[in-house]
Structure formats: structure tokens, C-alpha cells
């Protein structure tokens, strides 16, 4: 598919054509395992959904009740590994990996939805808003969305990494 797309692009420029596809956006929907042609990105039908981290480690669309902060301790002599995802170098394994061992670590917090009763498509910008406090001058925050498959495998969907300094009051990652 990738080469096919590149050939279409080359043909466009070599033959001085002016149209690449009927529609300007072509994306692969992972999970559904299909290509989809769109007139814009994100798709016009997209609507923003907010999901909230709950004090009991669940994730849902209800505003969470007031609660004590969750916390963890980071040990630089046992750094949190990176499992899959986009920020990898060649040779460090596939982008989609089982994150269960990572999620079992004491320096990782997880928030999990109930089993989804129907397919959920996430297409478009993904942002995480965290309210945090750190005892260190510099702290890295890594947020990863995974898809928990029925047998329990927790596979990478997307992620973001942000380094914060104490002086950063507000930052979007």
C-alpha cells in the first residue's frame, strides 16, 4: 500500500496531473484494518470526547469526585522503560506491544475503562490534561493510550511525552 501511494504521487508529478485522489485525505483505520478516504482531517464528523481519570483507577466520561491525588515514586536507578509507541529507534521492537509488564510497575499509574460494549473509533487530535506536582526540578510525564484486547493484552494506540520544569506553570502536550 505504501509503494502504491508513492507511485500515485510520482505519477502525479511526473505526468503533471493535478489530482492525487478523489478526496484529499486517505487514512488507515487501525483495528478496523481498512483504508478510508476523507475530505478533511480530522474528519468532519469528529466530535471531541473527554474522558476523566477516576480515583479508583477507572476511566470514564463522568466528572470525577474530589479525591486525594494519586502518587508514585520514580527511581532513576530503575528508569521506567518504554514499550512500543512512536518514539522508538529502529531495532527496538514493534510499535504495538503488550504493555502489561510495564503497567504492573510501581512507577506507572493506569486508568482503565469498563469493557467497551461497541467499537470506539478515535481519529483526530488526542490530548492529555494532567494536574501534577513533583518533588523534582525536572520531571518527564509520559501518557500512553492502549487498547486492552479481550485476553488482557494491552497494546499501544498512541502516546505523548513531555518534560516539565518547575517554572512551567502550564503546558500542553
Amino acid at each position: 500500500m505504501r509503494f502504491q501511494e508513492e507511485i500515485i504521487w510520482l505519477r502525479l508529478h511526473a505526468l503533471n496531473g493535478n489530482i492525487l485522489h478523489e478526496t484529499p485525505v486517505r487514512i488507515y483505520v487501525m483495528g478496523a484494518e481498512e483504508w478510508r478516504d476523507l475530505s478533511s482531517f480530522p474528519p468532519e464528523s469528529m466530535h471531541l470526547q473527554r474522558w476523566y481519570l477516576q480515583p479508583d483507577g477507572t476511566l470514564n466520561s463522568k466528572l470525577p469526585p474530589a479525591s486525594k491525588p494519586d502518587h508514585y515514586q520514580y527511581d532513576p536507578s530503575d528508569p521506567t522503560p518504554s514499550v512500543g509507541g512512536a518514539g522508538r529507534f529502529p531495532g527496538t521492537g514493534p510499535a504495538r506491544q503488550d504493555n502489561r509488564l510495564l503497567e504492573a510497575r510501581l512507577d506507572v499509574l493506569t486508568f482503565t475503562t469498563k469493557e467497551l460494549s461497541r467499537d470506539l473509533e478515535i481519529i483526530g487530535p488526542v490530548e492529555a490534561e494532567l494536574y501534577i506536582q513533583s518533588s523534582q526540578e525536572y520531571t518527564d510525564f509520559f501518557v500512553c493510550i492502549t487498547d486492552v484486547e479481550p485476553p488482557g493484552k494491552s497494546m499501544n494506540v498512541c502516546d505523548g511525552l513531555q518534560r516539565l520544569k518547575h517554572s512551567h506553570r502550564k503546558m500542553n502536550a
Binding site: 500500500m1 492525487l20 484529499p24 486517505r26 487514512i27 488507515y28 529502529p90 521492537g93 514493534p94
Partner: peptide, 19 residues
């Protein structure tokens, strides 16, 4: 402008399941 955008099941240099 009228850019064309293609996003596939890929990493920066290879497939999502490839090394």
C-alpha cells in the same frame, strides 16, 4: 493550499509490526 494527506499503519521508517 490544498495538501493531500496520507496516514498509514506505519512507523517513521517501516510498518507498525516490523522492527
Amino acid at each position: 493550499k490544498k495538501p493531500f494527506l496520507t496516514i498509514g499503519p506505519w512507523t517513521h521508517i517501516g510498518g507498525a509490526s516490523a522492527e
